[in-house]
Write a protein that binds this DNA or RNA. Structure first.
Ligand SMILES: NC(=O)c1ccc[n+]([C@@H]2O[C@H](COP(=O)([O-])OP(=O)(O)OC[C@H]3O[C@@H](n4cnc5c(N)ncnc54)[C@H](O)[C@@H]3O)[C@@H](O)[C@H]2O)c1
Ligand SMILES: NC(=O)c1ccc[n+]([C@@H]2O[C@H](COP(=O)([O-])OP(=O)(O)OC[C@H]3O[C@@H](n4cnc5c(N)ncnc54)[C@H](O)[C@@H]3O)[C@@H](O)[C@H]2O)c1
Lengths: 209, 209
DNA sequence: AATTAATTGTTATTTAATAAACAAAGGTAG
DNA sequence: CTACCTTTGTTTATTAAATAACAATTAATT
């Protein structure tokens, strides 16, 4: 059932489908067609059906997919039944925005700690998330059973922080600093650089119209 | 010369190469090998050479690439010589973090305005960027020659904001809200959803170790 | 001077992602 | 009751991206 090897892009889309399906559900919509989902996300209905096929769900002909059922199944696939705890490293502008934003957004994903190395940040809390000194990282990751970390420190600290996280046996890292970090195979790493996104938009926009 | 159709992924990597090459340059490094660039970014040297080939630059055998020259050429490819002006729509937590972060980071990309619809935001400024009322969007985009917009409003306002931007003849949009928006062909659209990234890390981390 | 090692630039192959094609099911209209 | 339309599920084809293979060049070494 665990569908161990879903393609990268399918996982991304399932997450997006779910968020928008929850809105449909809240609006009282019971069934939805593949082409309706496709329209929301600007993709083809075939893509949607293919993704849904991969997780083994089956819709009803002429009625489409049952919204609640599909949401529940995506949850079974994406979520860890026992939940997963997340830490934010770097309680600066971005880190604090993330704390405020993510809190209480996903039942199975909780931000339970933040870390910083500046005295004016340590001991404060944002959106209920306490900021701990960075030297307690290893201990608190263990104590609070944290398996995922978001890196939001300045670029020249990213590599150091990643090393600490590896040592603390983290399982997944989302790195928002523009400096790529190096981690062993058994840690899942995702890197995203906002400046690159903006430069990409700038490049393609340049050649428009 | 304009290299009109660089692959998507190559554009992303060129932006990342440049940022790290600038650091190398600042450290006094004059030449760099493809495998050194590759190591920084966790990709293969072939990938690096291929990207560089696509922009028509040629390194010297046994010495590698001239850092300054390569930076300059990437600039010629990615940047608009006259610069491009950027607006942020939604001066909330994320919008303000972006203003503080992007300001003075790229010579050819300037954030020159922000827009909001709440009275407590309008008229304030962050990192030198003034926040205007949303109803002045069309006028100011025209006056300030803004070609790119970043959407950072709550999800249920994203579609409205996108419509305003289309009407204002924007050329590129970077949408950070989780709600996909619809724009005509002649506008370049990039969407990024942080919750999806985190859920993806959570999914793949779940099956680790 | 010949040989080896390092490194680039380019072509070919493989792999991953997307899109197209189409059979099957079942409801609707004539 | 039959023909047709809609929509799903799956296979097949196309496209895009990454990787591998390799020829070419030059510096250093024997
Ligand atoms: N702010 C944005 O919108 C934005 C956009 C794109 C990328 N980023 C990236 O995100 C990262 C953070 O950006 P920011 O704007 O929040 O910066 P910031 O300076 O506001 O925050 C960085 C925080 O990290 C803390 N820190 C520094 N070294 C540390 C260490 N070794 N251990 C723990 N904490 C440490 C600092 O005390 C500070 O609180 C940067 O790498 C930046 O490039 C930010
Ligand atoms: N904060 C984060 O770290 C984070 C992370 C992921 C995604 N996002 C997304 O980014 C967006 C903004 O998040 P945020 O945390 O900054 O929210 P926020 O509530 O702090 O800010 C939103 C801002 O948009 C303004 N606004 C609302 N409607 C508007 C309109 N029609 N025109 C102009 N301005 C308008 C509000 O006044 C507010 O200032 C949301 O869609 C959110 O889902 C944020």
């Amino acid at each position: 059932m665990a569908m161990n090897t879903l393609p990268d892009k399918t996982v991304e889309r399932l997450s997006q489908y779910r968020r928008n399906l929850l809105i449909c559900d809240a609006n009282g919509k019971e069934h939805i067609f593949s082409h309706e989902i496709a329209n929301i996300h600007h993709i083809t209905p075939v893509q949607v059906r293919r993704d849904i096929m991969l997780i083994g769900y089956t819709g009803t002909l002429r009625k489409g997919y049952n919204v609640k059922e599909l949401v529940a199944l995506i949850g079974e696939i994406l979520d860890n039944p026992d939940g997963q705890n997340v830490a934010i490293v770097g309680a600066g502008n971005l880190g604090r925005a993330l704390m405020k934003y993510f809190t209480n957004r996903r039942e199975k994903l909780s931000i339970v700690a933040a870390f910083d190395n500046h005295t004016d940040k340590i001991g404060t809390s944002f959106a209920g998330v306490e900021v701990y000194p960075i030297d307690q990282l290893k201990q608190i990751i263990k104590d609070k059973n944290i398996s995922i970390a978001i890196i939001s420190v300045p670029f020249d600290e990213a590599v150091n922080v990643a090393a600490l996280l590896v040592e603390a046996k983290i399982k997944g890292i989302l790195n928002y600093s523009p400096r790529p970090v190096n981690v062993p195979e058994n840690i899942y790493l995702e890197e995203y650089d906002m400046v690159t996104s903006l430069e990409k938009v700038a490049y393609f926009a340049k050649n428009k119209k």
